[in-house]
Design a protein around this nucleic acid. Structure first.
Lengths: 138, 138
DNA sequence: ATCTTTTTGCAACAAAGTTGCATGCTAGTT
DNA sequence: AACTAGCATGCAACTTTGTTGCAAAAAGAT
């Protein structure tokens, strides 16, 4: 794990620091999505709020994580698959948000279906979020 | 228009007040989505910030408007079609966000395709957001 | 070990959203 | 048309969330 974390950071030309390692570790452990707030809570007093913001921002730019749109006001982040290159996300799986426990789960096996758009629209990215009850909450 | 606004409010058992009329009018005029900030700007000094929040909240609950997921931190609202009943949104069209001009457009003719979920998941709502370039920005 | 560059924490700030309560308005009744 | 109960609004104060500049600290290269 330790080694994996280092490798991801190195591969993206990021210096290996405490906060980056810790936050990346959180993502690797939870195989779902995390909100900024979750991360702040889980890192506890260890890092400044600002550092968390900046780390997430950096990870986003490098394509290590991607943001997931939700219909309430929260923004979620999740690890990208390996084929996410800098700036270009090919993160085309469906995300599931449980309306009971609030967890977000990446349905890695469910691909986002492509839809036909009206003439004139040039699509770059498709995102799909399903809300409902997860396995554990039914 | 005036009559239409009154009817919508009455149909939802809401008392007809200045702010509700004005905000509903804004939605009817702009046939796209509006952010809270947009509404605040357009209503100018006329209504309190809190009133705008509460009005949007009420409209959401009544199913007059729905919220649209975006990948940045903003929340957008748009009018529901007539078949949105209280609490239950059947707002199953795709939303398009232009990465250049930032506008969000409801693609009312493009329905969200249903996907097969892994066993155990109980879906309640499907949402799909396409990012890209709109007609005007290509 | 030393130097340069990047990252962090702090402080101060700006923006976004919430809550309680007194006042004003709406809609229904007389 | 006037009255009233109940809902909606505005205000103030507050919390939460996100941003910026800058000095101190840590990382990576030599």
């Amino acid at each position: 794990m330790e080694a994996q974390i280092d490798e991801i950071l190195r591969k993206n030309q990021l210096s290996v620091t405490g906060s980056r390692k810790r936050i990346l570790e959180l993502f690797l452990m939870s195989n779902g999505a995390l909100a900024h707030g979750d991360i702040e809570k889980k890192t506890g007093e260890k890092f400044d709020r600002v550092t968390v913001y900046r780390t997430l921002q950096t990870f986003l730019e490098k394509g290590i994580i991607h943001s997931i749109p939700t219909s309430d006001n929260s923004v979620l982040y999740a690890l990208c698959k390996d084929d996410c290159s800098e700036g270009h996300h090919h993160d085309n799986h469906v995300h599931f948000i449980c309306s009971d426990c609030g967890k977000t789960i990446c349905l890695a096996d469910v691909t986002v279906p492509q839809v036909k758009l009206p003439v004139g629209f040039l699509p770059q990215e498709y995102q799909m979020v399903v809300t409902g009850l997860c396995k554990d909450c039914r």
